[in-house]
């Protein structure tokens, strides 16, 4: 007996829920050789706005968690991702046109990256913070704090490893994220959002938008309630990136310019530290 195909509907991930685009729009996603894969939601400006509202709402709770707890949560994401290795390997394979072995390697690398960042959660403050020697009767120390809501344009080519590599450092430091997934390869991002939803990440900490960047990116760049903007995904479009940077200047967002990243190598601390604000406390002592 033949079964009827149960095709997966790829939706957005906003505030812990998986809504369709408010606009009702969708677009066709094709595999590396141009064959039809699925329809994905085409997020509108309003979806981007809703995602920012959700991220802002999640920020106080997420940033107030202990660093240790955030590390545990990110480690849990790695566990759940490991459990869905086969599904993601297939999606990455079809999206990126790689061999099975290569795409499995990419999923493994993504899991490893999550574990790596999870380990950093409660160690970063010791590295980038600390006590400062001052010539006055004060105990003076600096602690890093998350900057807030971060808008991220995920890498266009690396659909899973690249995505994890830009989202994990923002989340593990206590920020909340609105990420616009790769335009042509959005499906692994939606599945990754399902992984997040079934691990212990609170709703709204990571919000995933799919669709063309023409609506979502300028909204994130100009939104006054977004504190930082990662333009990694605008690599192939220098003029567009410049325009987004100009929009982001209105409320002095932190902006990360697009650069050629090699996702296979050790990422270093940079992607965590650019999203931290240093708070320095002067505590009177003696006399």
């Amino acid at each position: 007996m033949t079964r009827i195909d149960v095709r997966k509907t790829y939706k957005l991930a906003i505030g812990g829920a998986f809504p369709r685009s408010e606009s009702g729009r969708s677009y066709e996603v094709t595999d590396a050789s141009g064959g039809f894969l699925a329809n994905a939601a085409h997020a509108s400006r309003k979806d981007a706005r809703d995602a920012v509202v959700a991220a802002r709402k999640a920020f106080p709770g997420w940033s107030a968690r202990t660093a240790y707890n955030r590390g545990q949560v990110v480690y849990r994401v790695a566990e759940v991702l490991e459990g869905r290795r086969a599904q993601l390997a297939e999606e990455v394979q079809r999206a990126e046109g790689a061999t099975r072995r290569v795409s499995e390697g990419l999923v493994d690398a993504a899991v490893d990256r999550l574990v790596w960042y999870a380990g950093w959660a409660d160690k970063l403050a010791q590295v980038v913070g600390g006590t400062n020697p001052v010539a006055a009767p004060y105990f003076d120390f600096s602690v890093p704090e998350p900057t807030g809501v971060v808008g991220v344009l995920a890498p266009q080519e690396s659909s899973l490893l690249g995505l994890v590599s830009v989202v994990a450092p923002a989340v593990v430091t206590g920020n909340t994220v609105v990420v616009a997934a790769s335009v042509r390869r959005p499906l692994p991002a939606v599945t990754f959002a399902e992984v997040l939803a079934t691990s212990d990440v609170p709703g709204g900490v990571v919000n995933v938008l799919t669709g063309l960047l023409t609506d979502t990116a300028p909204t994130l760049a100009s939104h006054l309630d977004v504190n930082a903007l990662d333009l990694t995904g605008a690599l192939g479009d220098p003029d567009g990136a410049t325009a987004l940077e100009a929009d982001a200047a209105e409320n002095l967002k932190r902006v990360r310019r697009p650069a050629q990243d090699d996702w296979a190598t050790d990422p270093g601390l940079d992607r965590m530290t650019w999203l931290l604000e240093t708070k320095t406390v002067w505590h009177p002592i003696g006399t």
Binding site: R49, V52, R56, T219, S222, H223, L224, D225, V226, E250
Partner: peptide, 9 residues
């Protein structure tokens, strides 16, 4: 202004 505002403002 065409820009979404936020609770900081």
């Amino acid at each position: 202004t065409g820009r979404y505002s936020g609770p900081d403002y």
